[in-house]
Design a protein around this nucleic acid. Structure first.
Lengths: 224, 224
DNA sequence: ATAGTAAGTAGCAAATCAAAACTAACTGAC
DNA sequence: GTCAGTTAGTTTTGATTTGCTACTTACTAT
């Protein structure tokens, strides 16, 4: 069968084409823990269970665009770090109809999260309620693995911290993502080239104030 | 609008749902170069251009299953390393109709490739004909990046080499994937724990024969 | 025997990493 | 004021890994 013949048969066939949706795992740091945004489902199936914010992909919409829209509609967030994670397509993962879900993970500092809609809240990523709707537990687990894998060799940790931050703060983010403590001195050497001082200091603590930094715009090295 | 309402509207709407397809980037090492399997398209669109082997996802088929089937049908390959790469969904990437493509990359040692169907052949990954059909050039580029990124901290190189291999062979695979030469002594130290001797040696060369190894089944360490 | 060639090993300096110990700057209790 | 408590930030040291060179080994072809 040629591809064209297949397509013709495909168009004419009785079974419905799959729907394509996106689901987003939105991570943030709150209460010294990594947290995930979940919404409680009202409707069948899995009514009453928590699920990831998602959306069906519109006819003229890109996949990234649909993921952005899902987060805008469900959490009021715009212009945040968003990256594709994995695509889930097992028949039966949605009992209603075949749904292919392109999953994304998103990172946002806590201070950018506004008031959340009724039924939507943050839950600690390492102690999630169980069960979750659909295969969303698996999606979150993969997101956690991806984060852990990428934190050491990319800039993603900066996306979980306000524009201006202290090094203990940034180090703590790394530790939460990696799940293990880091040595202060080594951590500082490693990121020294990716930050710049603001000249400001924290105040109000019962101890030595810490310097406040921001992310360095462009590393000077890659110009070779 | 609730999700249920959306689904109802979605079902009733005039625009067709997207089709979901898979495309596979099959890599192998041949003639001391990394090569990709491509097939020449017969039909519109992009007739005459080279494209990745692909398939539409059947109604009861998993995504992985569809990718396996595509490689079985287009290259006669079974039971090979296959991993999801990225999902491409821009409207307009297929001029006929909206197609969401879940891309995979696959790795196979040359000795497992049999005779290929008419119109299907291997092309050097770093000197591909241009242009390619659809967005397949971008898919291959991403596959190359993924390979390069993963070769140093995973076992993927073993999937590009026969079951029994020499260390110069395995080192060369690493070098081709990384695009840079490696130091023999360091390379050997690094993989020492992941291989085991077969006791056999190559023969017939004009020089010292090299030991033949196989991949070590289970590393002993992860038992803690 | 000797030359050619690629396989495989030894060793060292430089860079990086893990780890502990140290100093600095604030608050609050005395 | 001074001292304890606390966290920020720096210095230092030893272990491990990397970059690199030089060497030895084992085969074939003259």
């Amino acid at each position: 069968m040629t591809e064209e013949e297949f397509l013709a048969a495909y168009d004419a066939s009785a079974y419905p084409r799959p729907s394509v949706a996106v689901d987003a795992v939105l991570f943030t740091i709150r209460d010294d823990a990594l947290q995930v945004l979940l919404t409680r489902r009202q409707a069948h199936p899995f009514a009453g269970l928590l699920s990831l914010p998602g959306a069906f992909v519109g006819p003229e919409e890109t996949l990234d665009g649909a993921a952005q829209r899902a987060l805008r509609e469900k959490a009021g967030l715009q212009d945040i770090f968003l990256e594709q994670l994995y695509t889930w397509g097992d028949p039966g993962r949605d009992p209603r109809l075949r749904v292919i879900s392109v999953s994304y993970y998103a990172l946002v500092p806590e201070d950018r999260i506004g008031p959340l809609p009724e039924g939507t809240a943050l839950y600690p990523a390492h102690a999630l309620p169980t069960p979750l709707a659909f295969d969303h537990a698996g999606i979150i687990r993969l997101g956690l693995e991806r984060l852990r894998g990428k934190v050491s060799y990319t800039d993603i940790a900066f996306s979980l911290v306000p524009e201006e931050f202290t090094l203990p703060q940034l180090q703590r983010v790394h530790e939460l993502l990696l799940g293990q403590p880091l040595y202060k001195a080594n951590f500082r050497k490693k990121i020294a080239g990716r930050i710049e001082e603001t000249g400001k200091f924290t105040s109000g603590g019962k101890h030595r104030p810490s310097r406040i930094y921001r992310k360095r715009a462009l590393p000077a090295e890659p110009l070779l």
